[in-house]
Design a protein around this nucleic acid. Sequence first.
DNA 1: ATAACTGTAACAAGTATAGTTACAATAGGC
DNA 2: GCCTATTGTAACTATACTTGTTACAGTTAT
Lengths: 144, 144
Amino acid sequence: MAANSQFAMAVHILALLALKGETNLKSDTIAQSVNTNPVVIRRILGQLASAHLVESQTGASGGTRLVLPPEKVCLVEVYKAVSCGEVFALPAKQANQDCPVGRSIEAVLCNLQKAIDRSVAEKLGEFSLASVLGMIDIESTAAA
Amino acid sequence: MAANSQFAMAVHILALLALKGETNLKSDTIAQSVNTNPVVIRRILGQLASAHLVESQTGASGGTRLVLPPEKVCLVEVYKAVSCGEVFALPAKQANQDCPVGRSIEAVLCNLQKAIDRSVAEKLGEFSLASVLGMIDIESTAAA
DNA sequence: ATAACTGTAACAAGTATAGTTACAATAGGC
DNA sequence: GCCTATTGTAACTATACTTGTTACAGTTAT
C-alpha cells in the first residue's frame, strides 16, 4: 500500500499558508508545491477545516487561509486532524478467552497502545507551525 | 486495509513463550490463543527469529522458545523486529524544488519524523517482556 | 453572465495485511 | 530406516487503505 503521508503533506500545506499570511491560497497553487493533484490537497484541507485549523472560501478568488497565527498551531492538532492517532493496531479478532493469556493480554495491549500514542502526542506537542517555519528558514538560509 | 497488528500479536506470542519457559511451543498452540492461523504465527515468529528474540526447531516435537529471559527482552526490539518503525510516512513524490518551501520542507519533515520515531522507541524502551507479564498477572489476579 | 474556485463523489491503480492451502525440509520415536 | 509431527515458505485470495484522476454541482468575484 502507499504509506500514509497525509501528515507530512498537511505540514507542508500549513507552512505554505503560514508564509502567505492573510491571503487566500488556491488548492492548485498548493498542489504545485507539494507536487500532487489539487483534489488530494483539497481532501487534506477538508480535514484541517474540520479541525478548525484552516478556513476556505468557494467561488472566484476563493482559497484557503490559516485560522490562527502559526505560533498557536500545534502539530498535535495537525496529527489528530489527519490520522487515526494509533501507532500500532490491536488485532481485529478477539483473543481466545479460554486461554489465561488470551483473556488478559488485550487490556495490557490496549494500555500499551495508549501509552505509546500519548508519547507521540506529547512529542508533537513540542512543535508549533511557527517552529516548523523556523526550521525552514534555517534550511533555506544555509542553502543560500 | 487490515490495520497492522503484528506488534500486538508479537507481544502476545512472546508472553505465551515466556510463561512456557524452556519448553518449545508449537505454532498451532500459539495460534489457538491468538485466535488466528498457524502460518500467521510462524510468519511473525520468523521475524522475531531474525531479530534473535526466539529460536525454533523443525521436526517432530519441534517448536519455538525464547532466547533470553523476559527481563532482557525489551519491547523496542520487538517493535523493530516486526514494523518499519515509522509513525508517519514522507510523501512518495519529491516536492517541487522550484518552490522555496518545497525545496526545504523535506529535510524538516525528515527530522520531525526521526524525532517522533525516536520518542516512540524511547517509550517502548521503558517496557520489558517481564513488565508485560507483570501486567498480565495483575489483570488475571484482579479477575480471579 | 461569465469565469474561477471549492467540495465531493466515483473510479482506477497500486500495495499492504490477514487468512488459507500446499508442500518441501527436517528431526524425533519406534 | 520408516513414519509422523512440525517448521519455513511460496502462492493465492479477499479486503481495505492511499493516492491520483475525472467530473460536476454549488458558490462567488468581476
